[in-house]
Design a binder for these strands. Structure first.
Lengths: 183, 183, 183, 183
DNA sequence: GGATAAGCGAGACGGTACGTCTGGTCTTTCG
DNA sequence: CGAAAGACCAGACGTACCGTCTCGCTTATCC
């Protein structure tokens, strides 16, 4: 449907311009040239619209570049390319606030930002263990949390730029930290 | 004033119980046994009340334990002790959503969580550089962002426990990562 | 709309029961089984709701009963039937208090109680002049003010009954007073 | 006390400027250079302050000018001199609205405007009956209501001038109407 | 090819929180 | 010791938004 596209586009624009709080269902509908009921027919509320508008499921095959540092940098670049968009950061900020009230949304959000990446980290660290770069039991979640965490802090908190370069710096430190962990 | 204490206590309780969205000015007033106007006389809105209730300025002298890893672990424990409280995490979640709409609040929030810790990290990393543990030009912000970031992700996103132990793990990886950075 | 009727009915009841001051927008909404926002969507405030509820525009064709006294009595009976209702008197009491603050309301109120009746008095007195009962130049406004005034004083001030019979007494005195005026 | 005078003066000014609704206890206190608590120490609420400020007890000996018309004109002039002041009209408008809620105030107000004048009308009409101008059983209250009513309508409703001349016109019509009543 | 169902724009509605205002009480401070 | 200053409780006010709903109108489908 073309209404979908107009709605999500409008939502993205408003998110980028004024943030989650200021985004209004009526406002989105108006900018999209659509009735409010159309929004609610497709999604179940503001949170879902915003989620759908700004938070596409990411798709990245686990990189296999020959070293943990390189692999982590690739993943970090991917995350940075995502969080670096104002609409994504804005959506995240608002949606996080509603996680407490809505477990369903909390699940979606975690799935989007954590579960999906988890597989990547498991694979990447598994390969690194095979290569002998890290101890076999190294926890992939710690790596995920560190990488995501720093970029998230920059995107949602300090407002500092979230770029692939910054992701790479984090990846470098993290790779070194993990490498030495078991020794 | 004793009204202050009752209000902030009520706000903390409600934050911990139901989160930011569900917290109501009227609800806070009622639980505190206070008139709504008293809230508005002291603060300018829900955001400010929550900020005042949950986000006390932290106070920690830069630790000096002889090694970068130990110092970072101490700082991480401090942050974890803060973010680990449900009220703090709840407040943070909600307030972050309003940062886009209110630059003033954004400033306060950043001041509370970033600026205050920045001095600590500068000192800690400065001492580590003197000791030769890290390169002299090591960026303290990266360390801050990594440490804060991972705990924030756990507190606000995955809901996993935020403990001193987890802080210490992060600190260990980070210290190693930084140590090797310049070599 | 059926909401209108419920709202106005509720407002009339509350007006009659407890008067203007005690009437609350929330109270009206609750009794009408309606949301407060519905009240404000249709009217711009308490004053307008009360006006709409209690002060329907009166409709009376100028009576032509053959004598000034009879015509005035008919008009007086009409006014008495209006002001005699508790809701009307209650509304009037409250709304008059807000006339000073709101010129718009003052205009409405004057239109409702004065302008509408003015035509009647002009016609009635015109016919009486043709019949030779009163001087041609007799001021219709004086008659209106006397008739309305006495009933208003009883309705809003002394709380004495406002009936057609009282209206007739006033009309009788007034008719006689006007008749002789020019002689 | 000099505070009394300042308060009542301030109240009169605000009444004349913006009417009863817009008059605020805090506003009166501020303009009088006095604390709000001082108002409440002397009077029991806004209504009483306004009453005290604008509605002095009237003092008029029953006139005895030889004819009913003249006597009524004298009384009417007295009433007109009172109601003609903006502060008095403004006070009346507001206070009438609170009569329903406060029987005590209703009593005061009626005493001020009705009971006090009643004696006058009884005397005046009694003398007129002795003179043979009116039937002995003529109801003084009707005369009072007509005279007061018309001036009240002008003062509080239409905002037309309330002068002794207008009072005299009413008195003339009324006197004639009463004179003929018994014949 | 005309009935029929589905989608849509428009916007009223119930509900609820917000932040403001005022009335009236009570406490603290100063002359 | 009384008055000024003003904090405080209570609660109504009017606004904004959410999510539901009922209308017609348009469009595609199916008999």
């Amino acid at each position: 449907m073309e209404a979908d596209a107009a709605i999500l586009q409008a939502a993205r624009e408003l998110l980028g311009e004024s943030g989650y709080e200021a985004l209004t269902m009526a406002g989105v509908a108006a900018r999209a040239g659509v009735a409010k009921s159309t929004l609610y027919r497709r999604w179940h509320g503001k949170a879902e619209v915003v989620f759908a508008a700004a938070l596409h499921p990411p798709e990245l095959e686990p990189p296999d570049l020959g070293s943990l540092a390189a692999d982590l940098a690739a993943v970090a670049a991917h995350i940075a390319g995502d969080l670096g968009q104002p609409a994504v950061a804005g959506a995240l900020l608002g949606l996080m606030g509603e996680m407490a009230a809505s477990p369903r949304l909390a699940g979606d959000l975690r799935g989007r930002f954590v579960a999906a990446e988890r597989r990547l980290f498991a694979t990447v660290l598994g390969r690194a263990a095979e290569r002998g770069e890290v101890a076999p039991a190294t926890d992939p979640d710690l790596a995920l949390e560190v990488l995501l965490g720093r970029l998230l802090v920059r995107a949602c908190f300090t407002g500092l730029p979230v770029t692939a370069a910054e992701g790479a710096r984090t990846a470098a430190v993290l790779a070194r930290g993990l490498t030495e962990e078991g020794r």
